[in-house]
Design a protein around this nucleic acid. Structure first.
Length: 476
RNA sequence: GGCCCCAUCGACUAGCGGUUAGGUCACCGCCCUUUCAAGGCGGCGGCAGGGGUUCGAAUCCCCUUGGGGUCACCA
C-alpha cells in the first residue's frame, strides 16, 4: 500500500509550502488508495512554537486534507510527534553505534566553529566536519560518554564511491561520497536530527513515497546512507520544485505572505487556495485550470509535475478565488461564508433573504470575502463613508435630488420594473443622459460610485431607506 | 565558492522530432453598459545563447549563460 506523509516542524505560522506538500502527498495517496500521514518534527527545541502544532493541524482540516494518521487522530504507528519518540531513536542510534556505522564525537560547538573558520581561511576544498573523532578508540569514547561527557553521534559516511539518488522526476542524481561529511544524527541534548528521525520514522511508519521539496535533494544521499546502514529499503524519492517569491528565490515570509492563516483571514477560500496550489508545477491533462480536490485526485500523476520553480502569484490566486466566488460556489454557500466576515466587523443583516440579495448583487464585484465587506458596507450600516469622487458627483447632481426624492416617493414600489422606466423617463424629460441622473443618485444612496446596478440597488435598499438617505441631502 | 537541480510569453503552464508554438493571469483595445465589476471578442508577448544528432528540432546530446537549492548539534 502507498503511504505518504508530510513532516512539518512546529516552528511558526502554518506555511503555504506545507499546504502545498500536503496537497501533493494527500492527492497521490488517495489516488493510490493509500494512506496519508502527518508527523510533527519537533526535534529542534530552540525553535519550538507551542501553538504551531495545533494550527498546522487546523490548517489541514480547513483545507480538507484530512490525514489518515496524525498527532490528533492517532493511529497504529504513533506517537506522531517526534519528541515523544526519543527512546526509539536512542535504540536505533545504539544499533548504528554497535555496527560501527556511527561514532561519538566530543567536539564542542566552539571547537567546530573554530575548525570551520580555520578551514575557510586555509581555503581548503573539503566541506563540513573534519572527522576528528571518526577513528577515535571506541572504548575511550564509551568511557567518556559513560562519564557523562556531552557529545553528539555522527554517521560514518563512506569516504569513497558514489551514492545515487533515484529521483522519480529527475532520474539518477549522482553524489560523490567524498563530498559528503559525517553528519550529526543525535544531538548533544539527546534529540535526533531530522536526518535520523525522519528515516527511522518513515521506515517504521511504512512510508513508501517521500514526496518533499527540492531543498532536500542534496541531503538525500545522506538519508540513503542511513537507510543502508540499517539495511532498510529506500522509498520512492520525489523532489518537487520549490514555491518561489516573485524574485524567484525560495518562498519566504520576509518577501511574501506565506501564512495560510493570513490568506484565510483575507477571505481566500480553501477550495481556491488548494486549486491554485494544484496549478503550481502541475497541470490537468486536459488543461482546465479550475478543478476540485476530487478531480485532482482522479487525474493526478507525479510524472506531470514540471520542474521549473513556480512563482507564487497573489494576483492569480485572487482571480481564482473570485472565480470560485462567482462561478463555483452556490449562492447559499457563498452567503454562509460571508457571514463570519460581517460578524467580525460588527455588521448585522436584517434577514437571510436580504443578505442573499446583497451577495448576489455583489457577486461579480469582489474577489475575497474580506473585499465583500469593504465594498458592501452601505448595505449593512448607515455609517458608510462618502468617497471623494462620489461627493463630487453628488454635488454636481444635487439640484436633481429633491425631484428624484419626490419621484421615488411617489412610486408604488421600488422594483426594477417600476424604477427603471421611472428613472429613464425622468432623465429623458430633463434632457439628461441616464448617467447624469444615476450617478448623483448612486452617490447619495451609497457614498460610492462603484456599486451594483441602480435598479437592484433600489430594490434591495428598500423605499424607506432610500428616502431616508436622500433626505440627508435634500432637507437642509 | 564546491556540489546538486532547473530553463517555453512579465507570471502559471500545454508541448514529450514534423504545431501558423496552444491556454490561463496580468496588460492594452473593442463590445455590453446607469457606475464599478463580471462577461464576450480581439491584441501585445515566449522556445536564453552557441554547437551538434537528424531529412526535420521548443522537444535528443554537449558547452556557455542565467536562475534556484544546499553546504548547522534547523528542519
Amino acid at each position: 500500500m502507498v503511504v505518504t506523509r508530510i513532516a512539518p516542524s512546529p516552528t511558526g505560522d502554518p506555511h503555504v509550502g506545507t499546504a502545498y506538500q500536503a496537497l501533493f502527498n494527500y492527492v497521490f495517496a488517495k489516488q493510490q488508495g493509500g494512506k496519508f500521514i502527518v508527523r510533527l518534527e519537533d526535534t529542534d527545541r530552540s525553535r519550538y512554537n507551542p501553538t504551531s502544532e495545533r494550527r498546522i493541524l487546523e490548517m489541514l482540516d480547513w483545507l480538507g486534507l484530512v490525514p489518515d494518521e496524525s498527532p490528533a487522530k492517532g493511529g497504529p504507528n504513533g506517537p506522531y510527534v517526534q519528541s515523544q519518540r526519543l527512546p526509539i531513536y536512542h535504540r536505533y542510534v545504539q544499533i548504528l553505534l554497535e555496527k560501527g556505522a556511527a561514532y561519538r564525537a566530543f567536539d564542542t560547538p566552539e571547537e567546530l566553529a573554530a575548525a570551520r573558520e580555520e578551514a575557510r581561511r586555509a581555503g581548503r576544498l573539503e566541506q563540513g566536519y573534519n572527522r576528528r573523532y571518526r577513528d577515535y578508540p571506541v572504548e575511550e569514547a564509551e568511557r567518556r560518554a559513560a562519564a557523562g561527557e556531552p557529545h553528539v553521534v555522527r554517521l560514518k559516511v563512506p569516504l569513497e564511491g558514489k551514492t545515487i539518488v533515484h529521483d522519480l522526476l529527475r532520474g539518477p542524481v549522482e553524489f560523490d561520497n567524498a563530498m559528503l561529511d559525517d553528519k550529526v544524527i543525535l544531538k548533544a541534548d539527546g534529540y535526533p536530527t531530522y536526518h535520523l528521525a525522519a528515516m527511522v520514522d518513515d521506515h517504521l511508519m511504512g512510508v513508501t513515497h517521500v514526496i518533499r521539496a527540492e531543498e532536500w535533494l542534496t541531503s538525500t544521499p545522506f538519508h540513503i546512507l542511513i537507510l543502508r546502514a540499517f539495511g532498510w529499503e529506500e522509498p520512492v524519492w520525489c523532489h518537487t520544485p520549490l514555491l518561489r517569491n516573485p524574485d524567484k528565490s525560495k518562498l519566504s515570509k520576509r518577501k511574501m505572505d506565506t501564512s495560510v492563516e493570513s490568506y484565510r483571514a483575507q477571505g481566500i477560500l480553501p477550495e481556491a487556495l488548494l486549486n491554485y496550489l494544484g496549478t503550481m508545477a502541475w497541470s490537468m491533462p486536459d488543461g482546465r485550470e479550475i478543478f476540485s480536490l476530487q478531480e485532482m485526485i482522479e487525474h493526478f500523476s507525479l510524472e506531470r509535475i514540471s520542474l521549473g520553480g513556480p512563482v507564487f502569484d497573489l494576483n492569480k490566486l485572487k482571480w481564482m478565488n473570485g472565480k470560485y466566488i462567482r462561478e463555483v460556489l452556490s449562492l447559499d454557500d457563498l452567503t454562509e461564508r460571508v457571514k463570519p466576515f460581517l460578524k467580525r466587523r460588527g455588521l448585522a443583516w436584517p434577514s437571510e433573504v436580504y443578505l442573499k440579495q446583497v451577495v448576489e448583487a455583489m457577486r461579480p464585484r469582489f474577489d475575497t470575502l474580506e473585499e465583500f465587506v469593504d465594498k458592501a458596507l452601505y448595505f449593512f450600516t448607515e455609517a458608510y463613508p462618502l468617497q471623494a469622487k462620489a461627493q463630487a458627483k453628488l454635488e454636481e447632481g444635487r439640484p436633481l435630488l429633491p425631484a428624484l426624492q419626490a419621484l421615488l416617493a411617489s412610486l408604488p414600489d421600488l422594483l426594477p420594473e417600476t424604477t427603471e422606466p421611472a428613472l429613464r423617463g425622468f432623465a429623458e424629460a430633463k434632457g439628461l443622459k441616464p448617467a447624469a441622473v444615476m450617478q448623483p443618485l448612486r452617490a447619495a444612496l451609497t457614498g460610492s460610485l462603484e456599486t451594483p446596478g441602480m435598479f437592484d440597488l433600489l430594490m434591495i435598499l428598500d423605499k424607506e431607506r432610500v428616502l431616508a438617505r436622500l433626505a440627508r441631502y435634500t432637507s437642509q
